[in-house]
Amino acid sequence: ETGKELVLALYDYQEKSPREVTMKKGDILTLLNSTNKDWWKVEVNDRQGFVPAAYVKKL
C-alpha cells in the first residue's frame, strides 16, 4: 500500500509485555508511529505493538 513506511528489523526482539511484538532480524515491518524516540509502534502479521527504536531502521 502506498503511504506506508517500512522498517527493517536489525536484531531479534522477544516481546516482554502484551503491548510489544516479537520480530526476527531481517523482518520488514510496517511503521505506524515513530514519535517516541525509544519505542516505535509497528504492525507485523496483523498484530500491532511496540519495538525498541534502536532495533529497527527506516527503509
Rank of each mutant, 00 (worst) to 15 (best):
V44C: 11
R19H: 11
L32Q: 03
S17C: 10
K58Q: 09
P52A: 02
A54W: 10
T22P: 06
D38R: 13
V42W: 00
G3F: 13
N33C: 11
W39D: 01
V44G: 15
F50H: 05
T30V: 15
N45E: 14
G26T: 01
T2K: 13
N33W: 07
M23P: 00
Q14P: 06
G3S: 12
L8V: 15
M23G: 00
Y55K: 09
G49S: 02
P18S: 11
I28A: 03
G26D: 05
L10C: 09
F50K: 03
T35E: 15
E43W: 07
L59E: 05
Q14N: 14
A53M: 04
D12R: 03
K37F: 07
Y55Q: 06
T22Y: 03
W39T: 02
D27M: 15
K24S: 09
V56M: 06
E5V: 15
G49Q: 01
L10Q: 04
Y55P: 02
P18Q: 09
Q48G: 06
E15H: 08
K4D: 07
D12W: 03
V21I: 13
V42H: 00
W40N: 01
V51L: 02
T30P: 15
V51D: 01
L31S: 01
D46K: 11
D46Y: 08
R19E: 12
V51M: 01
T30D: 05
K24Y: 10
K57W: 08
L8K: 08
K24R: 13
V44P: 00
E43F: 06
P52L: 04
Y13I: 01
R47M: 07
A9N: 01
T2Y: 12
L10Y: 04
D46G: 15
L29W: 03
S17T: 12
Q14M: 12
K41W: 15
V51K: 00
Y13K: 00
R47Q: 08
Y55N: 07
E15T: 08
Q14V: 14
V7W: 07
D46T: 10
A54Q: 11
E15M: 11
K41S: 07
F50E: 04
A54M: 11
V56C: 14
M23Q: 02
L8P: 00
N36C: 11
E1Y: 03
L29F: 06
V44Y: 14
T2I: 14
L31M: 03
S17P: 05
K24I: 08
N36E: 11
N33F: 06
A53T: 06
V7H: 04
S34T: 10
